[in-house]
Nucleic acid binder design. Structure first.
Length: 564
RNA sequence: UCCGGGGUGGUGUAAGUGGCAGCACAGCAGACUUUGGAUCUGUUAGUUCAGGUUCGAGUCCUGGCCCCGGAGCCA
């Protein structure tokens, strides 16, 4: 019953440390391809790799896997470094690029040829596919498989010098065309791509493939544990093969774990890119996106994301994490730290008939009941106030405790009021305002006669309210498993049309006018909100809802409707 | 069909050499409450199946079933 508490990867690392397998060293790496923005799935990998290094006095390298210049851009390099730093990790001076090793990778390629372990193949891409065989049938040897070392060397050098057009030759490993593992059927090591690279510019026209570049890069850097996701499991024999053939400094161990999947969102870079390109979102940093940039703009903190990654664990089972776990994690943190304020999102006017016409009182409000040191503040109260439309029902259902004709409710930190009259639009029947009376003996909200008032609602003084936009954000998709989506049309169908709702003219307590971009608040009873750092201006904050509060009433109401 | 990997409550994740199946979230019930928030208490629910070894199997053996990945000059 007394388990080690370690996940299976940390267990391997601990064992290797105890057997002194790598001379007491722990060196990991996070190897993104700069072809998109980092998302929360990458955060899992970042926390794992940097975390393991940190815990064991090791280092974690940041290495860009930039071997395919047709898809990679500096914009992505910059965003990735920014996001890793924001998440709270530091690669010190260990910043690398696979492209740093192009020359060595090329030299090792010649070594392979000299050892008779690689050859230049001049089949077309289609022919190579055809010769590869199928899952159940072995492949056939390329007619160029037995070219002499000299011929191979000559051809490989001329590939490098730009003598041949794209697609005419590739360098292939000479392994086994009959292997049941397709990755071992003479995989391509280098291909010709006459396109400039974002770092090496036009010095190269041949580029190494992932399988070859990755293991060699790991070995060059002295990585001890090369942690990647499950889809590379079939590639491990090739990872090991390459390193076994070459005279490299060390042989890292590749370990695979299950990538993160979240309900109601997509995690593939391709689909994320599609959302951006098709303008279904504002961009990579849209607060509905599962990208780190999006989560950051939504109002998630780095701590909450790290904590989330801790909670979900690391294993080899394919799994889908309920997105509510993520939401619960940010709630836990913000509950402890976010200052409370009063904000009415969908306002309904209330006139307190027996409250003196021009009177204003400054009432004491607690900033954070979870943190007494946060102190108190004053909020103005007057004869006309705004309350939430949802907090009044003309015909209250069972278990609805809030305001209704003839009923009492407590205004937080203010008074107990009773609803005396409902004013409606003559034509539409829409409720436009309420007339209430207040009990002057209940100042601050307590009833000296000891009577119980079940509900407390939030409010904002109409004369003092600060008006601004508030955005309510929901899941991007209506289906819990949009990862199954195949094409663009299907994606469009499953997108949640209500993922973004912009509420204009929300009434906030006056102090919020000076809310600084990038700060977080709890709007009492409504949720946690973040001052959007992009769209807010000095004195004109715009709020994004990070997450709602747990809403017991919403649950009751839902089950009432559902149950009939 | 071939190769690789994986199946523990609704979800996720634990149980060094076989020894009371634990934790978190969700659910349900209750307490408390000037946020239907927070907090606290209690509780429902699980080893993919069939055999075998054993005093004893989530763990070991045999066989089946189901799921995921793999035929890029992508990573």
């Amino acid at each position: 019953m007394t388990g080690s508490g370690l996940d299976f990867i940390r267990e391997i690392v601990a064992r290797d440390l105890s057997t002194n397998k790598h001379g007491g060293r722990v060196c990991t790496r996070f190897p993104p391809e700069p072809n998109g923005y980092l998302h929360i799935g990458h955060a899992k990998s970042i926390c794992l790799n940097f975390g393991i290094a940190q815990e064991n006095g090791g280092v974690c390298h940041l290495r860009f896997d930039d071997t395919n210049p047709t898809k990679e851009e500096v914009e992505y390099v910059d965003s990735i470094m920014n996001d890793v730093r924001w998440l709270g990790f530091d690669w010190k001076d260990k910043l690398f690029y696979a492209s740093d090793y192009f020359e060595q990778l090329y030299d090792y390629g010649e070594d392979l040829i000299r050892a008779g372990k690689a050859y230049v193949c001049s089949l077309t891409a289609d022919q190579i596919r055809d010769f590869r065989g199928t899952l159940t049938e072995p492949g056939r040897n390329s007619p160029h498989r037995d070219r002499s070392v000299d011929e191979n060397l000559d051809l490989f050098r001329r590939m490098r010098s730009g003598e041949f057009p794209d697609g005419t030759h590739v360098l292939r490993a000479k392994i086994d065309m009959a292997s049941p593992n397709l990755n071992m059927r003479d995989p391509t090591l280098f291909r010709i791509r006459k396109v400039p690279h974002h770092r090496t510019k036009d010095t190269w026209c041949i580029y190494p493939m992932y399988d070859y570049a990755h293991c060699v890069s790991d070995a060059i850097e002295g990585i001890t544990h090369s942690i990647c996701t499950l889809e590379f499991e079939n590639h491990r024999p090739l990872y090991d093969w390459c390193l076994d053939q070459l005279n490299v400094p060390c042989h890292p161990q590749q370990i695979e774990f299950a990538r993160l999947n979240l309900t109601y969102t997509v995690m593939s870079k391709r689909k994320l890119l599609q959302l951006v390109q098709d303008r279904h979102v504002w961009g990579w940093d849209d607060p509905r996106m599962p990208t780190l940039a999006g989560l950051r703009r939504r109002g998630y903190t780095p701590e909450s994301i790290r904590r989330f990654c801790e909670k979900i664990g690391v294993a080899k089972n394919d799994s889908v994490i309920d997105i509510h776990i993520l939401e619960e994690t940010i709630r836990e943190e913000l509950n402890r730290h976010a200052p409370r304020v009063l904000a009415v999102l969908r306002p309904l006017k209330v006139v307190i008939d027996n409250y003196p016409e021009s009177q204003v009182e400054e009432l004491d409000a607690v900033n954070n009941p979870e943190d007494p040191s946060a102190g108190t503040r004053k909020v103005p109260f007057s004869r006309t106030i705004w309350i939430e439309q949802d907090d009044f029902r003309e015909d209250p259902p069972k278990q609805f405790f809030r305001l209704a004709p003839g009923r009492e409710v407590r205004l937080r930190y203010a008074y107990i009021i009773r609803c005396a009259e409902v004013v409606k639009d003559q034509e539409t029947g829409e409720i436009i305002e309420l007339h209430c009376t207040y009990d002057p003996a209940t100042r601050g909200g307590s009833a000296p006669d000891g009577r119980k008032v079940k509900a407390t609602i939030h409010w904002v003084s109409a004369d003092h309210a600060f008006e601004t936009d508030v955005r309510l954000l929901e899941h991007l998709f209506t289906t819990p498993d949009p990862g199954q989506i195949k094409d663009g049309a299907q994606m469009k169908e499953t997108l949640n049309p209500r993922s973004l709702e912009v509420l204009e003219g929300c009434k906030l307590e006056p102090g919020l006018k000076s809310a600084a971009p990038g700060t977080r608040f709890q709007f009492e009873r409504m949720g946690y909100f973040f001052v959007d750092p992009v769209d807010s201006k000095e004195g004109a904050p715009v709020f994004n809802r990070v997450v709602t509060l747990r809403d017991t009433w919403a649950k009751i109401e839902k089950s009432q409707k559902g149950g009939g």
